[in-house]
Design a binder for these strands. Sequence first.
DNA 1: GTATAAAGTCACCGGTTGGTGACTTATCTT
DNA 2: AAGATAAGTCACCAACCGGTGACTTTATAC
Lengths: 201, 201
Amino acid sequence: MVRNREQSEARLIAAVGQILAREGFAGLGVNAVARAAGVDKVLIYRYFDGLPNLLRAYGEREDFWPTSAEVLGEDAAAIRALPVGKRVEHVVLGLLDALRKRPQTIEILAWEAMEDNALTRTLADIREHWGLRVIEHVFPDPSERSEDVLALANLLVAGFQYLMIRARRSPAYGGVALNTETGWQHIRQGIRLACRSIDHT
Amino acid sequence: MVRNREQSEARLIAAVGQILAREGFAGLGVNAVARAAGVDKVLIYRYFDGLPNLLRAYGEREDFWPTSAEVLGEDAAAIRALPVGKRVEHVVLGLLDALRKRPQTIEILAWEAMEDNALTRTLADIREHWGLRVIEHVFPDPSERSEDVLALANLLVAGFQYLMIRARRSPAYGGVALNTETGWQHIRQGIRLACRSIDHT
DNA sequence: GTATAAAGTCACCGGTTGGTGACTTATCTT
DNA sequence: AAGATAAGTCACCAACCGGTGACTTTATAC
């Protein structure tokens, strides 16, 4: 048996992702993670001082959250020149595409919303800083942020996040297909439709 | 000790609601329910043949789901005379108000989306029949159901459901207050804003 | 009043959970 | 080569989980 702390840490972090993808957060525990990593669970305490910190390490991997560039596109300055409605549409759709590629991130978001414990709180901390940066990027001028438009934008984001969560178990939601690409195209069209009314006041 | 099966059953059903309200579905188990009901857990098996059926009994109480009248208003026929966008607005806002009064129902919806087991599947069955009736009521003519509008309507419903779920733990979401009435007024305005573009094509 | 079926109690089962102490073994420094 | 430090193993803990069998107690039907 080769002894290698770095490798063991990496295995534990990878095991978190495996379990989240396979069983969801319900199966996430010290025993399960250690078993999946092929490592003794005592190392979780020695190296990470418990599961919450291991989960924090997992949440801080580079590709866990999309970068601002991935959400906003390469030319962030060009976005700020668009009317507000178009800007909202752009960032909401960008966020949708970015998150659809990250099923484990969706799993974390879901869990964060459901339960309130040491593990979820650490994850909420990580996401906090990330989310604020995006808003600052898109709406540098606070006067542009109408309360109602902000509410609508967040409602749309909350909506597709919830649909992504349901998509893992259910093939459809209220007549909208969640397991086909065309179903998600309709959702994207719905978002565009909603954003159209923002500039049209 | 008075012996009364009906009362014990009622206590168990009430205990389910208590636990859902207090701890959420994470704390929902045979032992916890029996303890909260002040009743031996063996009665759960004797009277309900297990927790799933007890939960089904809980989900079938009269006031658990809003009635169609509560969502649509008293004059369901008048709604069908409105343009499509107004109809969507009306039913989405009606559903929002109806569900805001039912925190335990939100808890169930959340759980249903998160986990997939015997308990959640029984609850999904109950909700299924309920949801279809509402859609049939509002859009009796299938030709009126544009795919994109349907997607938007479901996106809005999914959105406020997700926000309600988060509201239990977080006071705000992306700058929108979830713990004040004015915050929810902004969300309602956002819904109205989104629906405006439906008829405006 | 007595028999009987049901209501309720209690102790226990195997399994899993998060967590720890004591141990062996490998690697690295001197 | 010897010793120190860290990596990894293992057995065990108390607490909980869902679930069951055997028991006592009460109400009810006859």
